[in-house]
């Protein structure tokens, strides 16, 4: 059994805000792993439609041993679930590394800046700044779309809070939020030729790490990464490539037409369709993608999104072998004291 997270229970009142180690922006585990040069793994949690905290822990259970940080989505696809803030607060108390997701769709600048302080106080070390899907695709299409910020101005705002210690209004913060700032990028949808430039803009606005949307088209992703390297961005930001298991060709077609920002090439769908066990093939595909991505210069980790297939995440990560280096390292360091005594 592999395990990369040793949960360190966190009590916000006794422990106070997470202190960043020297040279770090935050006390986030994800930042420590990335700055050490390890290939990082983050995983998306399927948020419960429940008010029971035990449901959150149950959802996190299959991810805890293989993810450096767990992303709690913020009503992704404009569907209502338990809030990212609630989930992150619970998980950080248990000691998991978490990524709070903030979408600009549902809250204005007053609410968001307040949430950033609240999250940091509750032990959230990383925040992912997102634009958010339109309200029309979700379960409440009559909702008012807010979009007061966009993901880029949101990044700059939180960076201003963290580094200058002020709200956007200029009012001083007595204790700024020490957070590791993330943003999303979708390398596989138009405008393909400008996606790297858009990433550059996010880096300029304050992004420390990037989690991409699903990548099923390696050719497009490679072209994107080549542009990223041309701009020198791979040295300024940690890029985690998004992967996930497809469960069947039918599900893949459905995702392609109904989920915004998902691009799946026909060849991929044909491969799944031709397999005897489509779920197994989808898993194999995810593992192969992870292994290929790891070889691409500038890819610092993977972000595994297995919506309602969380039980597969452990197998995918373990079988891809991306944690071997770290597990060997852990084994070596355990051996070290004995060597010293002999």
């Amino acid at each position: 059994m592999i395990a990369i997270q040793t949960p360190e229970p966190f009590d916000p009142i006794a422990d106070g805000p997470l202190e960043p180690p020297p040279g770090h922006h935050s006390g986030s585990r994800l930042e420590r792993v990335l700055r050490r040069g390890w290939f990082a793994v983050t995983a998306e949690l399927n948020p419960p439609d429940s008010a029971d905290p035990r449901d959150v822990l149950k959802a996190a259970e299959p991810l805890k041993d293989v993810a450096d940080a767990i992303n709690a989505t913020d009503a992704s696809g404009a569907n209502c679930h338990m809030s990212s803030m609630g989930i992150c607060s619970l998980l950080s108390r248990v000691g998991y590394g978490v990524v709070l997701q903030i979408s600009c769709r549902d809250r204005n600048r007053i609410a968001i800046q307040g949430d950033v302080l609240g999250a940091a106080a509750m032990g959230v070390g990383s925040i992912l700044c997102l634009t958010g899907d339109g309200v029309g695709v979700g379960d409440q299409p009559g909702a008012k779309p807010v979009f007061d910020f966009d993901s880029v101005s949101l990044l700059r705002t939180i960076r201003t809070m963290r580094d200058d210690g002020t709200f956007l209004s200029g009012r001083r913060l007595s204790s700024p939020p020490r957070v590791f700032l993330g943003a999303a990028e979708n390398p596989c949808v138009p405008p393909l030729e400008w996606r790297a430039q858009r990433l550059a803009k996010k880096v300029r606005a304050g992004a420390d790490f990037i989690q991409t949307n699903y990548v099923f088209d390696l050719a497009r992703f490679r072209a994107f990464m080549a542009r990223v390297r041309d701009l020198g961005l791979h040295e300024k930001v940690f890029i985690l490539a998004g992967v996930g298991p497809l469960t069947s060709a039918r599900a893949a077609r459905w995702m392609r037409t109904n989920v915004p920002g998902v691009h799946i090439p026909d060849a991929v769908i044909a491969r799944i369709e031709g397999a005897r066990d489509q779920t197994e093939e989808g898993k194999r595909l995810a593992i192969e993608l992870i292994q290929e991505m790891r070889e691409i210069e500038g890819v610092a980790g993977v972000h595994v999104m297995a919506y309602r297939r969380e039980h597969l995440v452990h197998e995918i990560v373990a079988e891809s072998g991306i944690l071997d280096e770290r597990l060997n390292h852990a084994a070596e360091t355990r051996v070290a004291p004995e060597n010293l005594s002999s």
């Binding site: 634009t131 899907d133 339109g134 966009d150 993901s151 880029v152 101005s153 999303a184 990028e185 979708n186 949808v189 138009p190 405008p191 400008w194 858009r198 803009k201 606005a205 949307n213 915004p260 920002g261």
Partner: peptide, 8 residues
């Protein structure tokens, strides 16, 4: 105001 979203 800062570029396209990921849903194009």
């Amino acid at each position: 105001r800062n570029g396209p979203c990921g849903g194009v």
